[in-house]
Design a protein around this nucleic acid. Structure first.
Lengths: 201, 201
DNA sequence: TGTACATCAGTGAACGCGCGTTCACTGATGTAC
DNA sequence: TGTACATCAGTGAACGCGCGTTCACTGATGTAC
């Protein structure tokens, strides 16, 4: 009998798409137990595979972590694109913070990888650049013609800082009451972003 | 001869202030090798003491990490207080980001501890609260009387988000050229914070 | 001032553990003829 | 269509390592009398 009718119960010797399976296992572990708990062995375990199997798909642990980060940026960009097409002003900021809220540990890993890797532009960085460029042209469009390139650049950085900062800070327990009073996370984020103009001190 | 003239070369059996020594060792390791490299054994090694010694001062590794975070917040508050007294508007934001830039790994540990600890108000949280309250009254003072408590609160959160986000993002290599063009980190930070008002999209 | 003793703050050896990685291997798959 | 064979993607045992923590211990310090 030659492997006809692929029995779905029988675990095949070959996984099919173990690379993707490992990435998903890694993300599951990160969100369930935190970035500290992520080990290659744990990922293999989670994927139902021997400890040596991942080495056929990733050079070492760092490479897997990099791939996880990359996949995270891909998903973030996806979420932002959806928000960009659909709703009005502020929607993208809200979508950004929402992504970070729904995937806090993944978001942390993404940030850590961004900082530590000093190598050449990877896919991740290119996607990040894309997002940043899109942000700039959005700001350019919504401002008058009187704004310089430098102003646009600085405003884009300010904007990115604000959403990144808010993404991390809004998870503090300290803000729970205020968030409820405002009617949920998204409303809270929107309200905070609306108050960025008041800052003069 | 009874331990007269304390020979500075001779290492005494008792350390003197090992608790502080361990904290400083921990911070040194964190900044030198990153938060991942921090182990109790490494801290003891760095402090020149046996692996078991730290247990006379900290219940376990987490407690030491918490103490490091606490000390970090103390220093951050110190830096902010200096900036508050001395310079004009924006000085505190610049000081905040400067602290994070000079102690990037420590800052990261502080943030991670803030997020993970769900316990009662520790000294760290009280100091954090103090800083946040100070920020609010500063905003209240600099705004007119027409601003509601809610607006002040939201503006304070927006402000905090912006400096936290900028603190982390400004270390990306991607901004090096712009930072140099503007004449240094502080000028860069100041310029970005000045552009927070432009954000409407 | 001296002495007995409790307490404190270190030592160093040992424990069990999970980790990253390597190795020789084997089962499954695809391709050339 | 069948067969030989190269290649691919797994296995599972093993390695050495540093880790957190515990233990019985000992040297130094402070206190009561």
């Amino acid at each position: 009998m030659k492997a006809q009718a692929p029995d779905p119960a029988a675990k095949p010797y070959h996984h099919g798409d173990l690379r993707r399976g490992l990435l998903e296992a890694a993300m599951a572990i990160i969100e369930r137990e935190g970035p500290q708990a992520l080990s290659l062995r744990a990922v293999a375990r989670e994927a139902g595979v021997s400890p040596a199997a991942p080495y056929h798909h990733f050079k070492d642990k760092d490479e897997l972590l990099g791939a996880v980060s990359q996949e995270g940026f891909r998903r973030l960009k996806e979420a932002m694109d959806v928000a960009a097409g659909a709703r009005g002003p502020g929607a993208m900021g809200v979508a950004y913070v929402r992504f970070a809220r729904l995937n806090p540990a993944l978001y942390r890993v993404m940030y850590d990888c961004s900082r530590s890797s000093e190598d050449m532009p990877s896919v991740r960085e290119r996607e990040g650049e894309d997002g940043f460029a899109a942000l700039k042209s959005r700001i350019r469009r919504s401002s008058g013609e009187a704004v310089s390139d430098l102003d646009v650049e600085l405003a884009a950085i300010a904007s990115w800082s604000a959403v990144h900062g808010l993404a991390e800070i809004s998870t503090f327990h300290q803000f729970k009451p205020l968030i409820e009073a405002l009617g949920g996370e998204d409303a809270f984020v929107s309200a905070v972003l609306d108050h960025l103009g008041l800052l003069k001190s």
